[in-house]
Amino acid sequence: MMLASLWACVYSRFLRGWLKWVLRLLTGRCELQRVCGGARAGARRTRGIEHSLELSKNKVLRNAVYVGEDEVEKCVTDIMKEKKIIEQKNKDFKTDLQVCLLQISGYKQLYLDVENLRKVPYDSDNEEHEEELIKLWNLLMPHENLKARITKQWCNIGFQGDDPKTDFRGMGMLGLVNLVYFSKHHASEARQILSHSNHPKLGYSYAIVGINLTEMAYSLLKSGALKSHFYNAVPGLPNIEHFHQFY
Score class of each variant (00 low, 15 high):
G172D: 02
L194I: 00
G203M: 02
S195G: 15
Y204Q: 06
R169D: 00
Q192T: 07
I211Q: 02
G161Y: 08
R169C: 04
D167A: 00
E215R: 13
R191I: 04
K201C: 14
D167Q: 09
T214I: 04
G203P: 12
I208Y: 03
A207W: 05
G210V: 02
E189L: 14
A190T: 05
K165T: 08
Q192P: 04
Q192S: 13
T166D: 11
K201Y: 15
P200D: 04
G203S: 10
L202N: 10
V209E: 03
D167G: 07
R169V: 11
S183V: 03
H199G: 09
L179N: 04
E215H: 12
L174S: 01
R169I: 11
R191S: 04
G170K: 13
G210T: 00
G161N: 10
S188N: 11
G161D: 09
A207I: 02
M216N: 13
G175P: 02
K184V: 10
N212Y: 09
Y181C: 04
S205H: 10
L202T: 07
H186M: 07
A207K: 06
A187N: 14
M171T: 04
Y204A: 05
N212R: 12
V177G: 01
R191C: 08
K184F: 06
D163K: 05
H199F: 09
N212C: 09
Q192Y: 14
T166H: 12
H186Y: 12
V177D: 00
